[in-house]
Amino acid sequence: MQELDKANGEVDVAVRLPGMRVSYDGESLTEESLAGTWTEQLQLWLDQAISAGVPEANAFVLATADAEGRPSSRSVLCKGLDQRGVVFYTNYTSAKSHDLTVTRYASATFPWYPLHRQVHVRGEVEKVDITETAEYWASRPRGSQLGAWASPQSRVVDGRRALDNALHNIERRFADAENIPFPPHWGGWRIRPDVVEFWQGQRDRLHDRLRYVRTEDGWRVERVAP
Rank of each mutant, 00 (worst) to 15 (best):
Y105L: 04
F182E: 12
Q118T: 04
G159P: 14
I191E: 09
V119N: 06
A225T: 11
N165A: 08
T133E: 05
A65Y: 09
I191L: 13
N179F: 11
K79I: 00
A225F: 08
T131K: 11
N8L: 00
N165S: 13
G9W: 06
T39A: 07
A35V: 02
G143K: 09
E197G: 04
T30L: 08
F60N: 02
R190E: 02
V13W: 10
T101C: 01
T30N: 13
P114K: 12
L206G: 05
D176P: 14
Q202L: 00
G53Y: 14
D194N: 15
I50E: 13
Q200R: 12
L167V: 03
Y24V: 01
S97A: 15
H98I: 00
L4A: 00
L115Q: 13
R190M: 05
G85E: 11
V15D: 14
H120P: 01
T30G: 12
F110E: 06
L4H: 10
I130V: 13
R192L: 10
A177Y: 15
R21T: 11
V221I: 15
G123T: 03
W189I: 04
A108C: 05
G85Y: 14
G143I: 01
R161A: 09
T93I: 04
A65L: 03
E216K: 13
L100H: 08
H185I: 02
P152N: 09
R190H: 04
N8E: 00
E171F: 12
R104C: 05
Y113E: 00
L146F: 07
G69L: 02
Q83K: 13
E197V: 02
A35W: 08
A49Y: 12
E68K: 13
W199L: 01
R122Y: 05
A65F: 03
Q202M: 01
W199T: 04
V196D: 10
K96F: 05
V22D: 11
R223I: 00
Q48A: 04
A175C: 08
L42W: 09
P141C: 04
D194G: 14
Q145S: 09
T133K: 07
A59H: 10
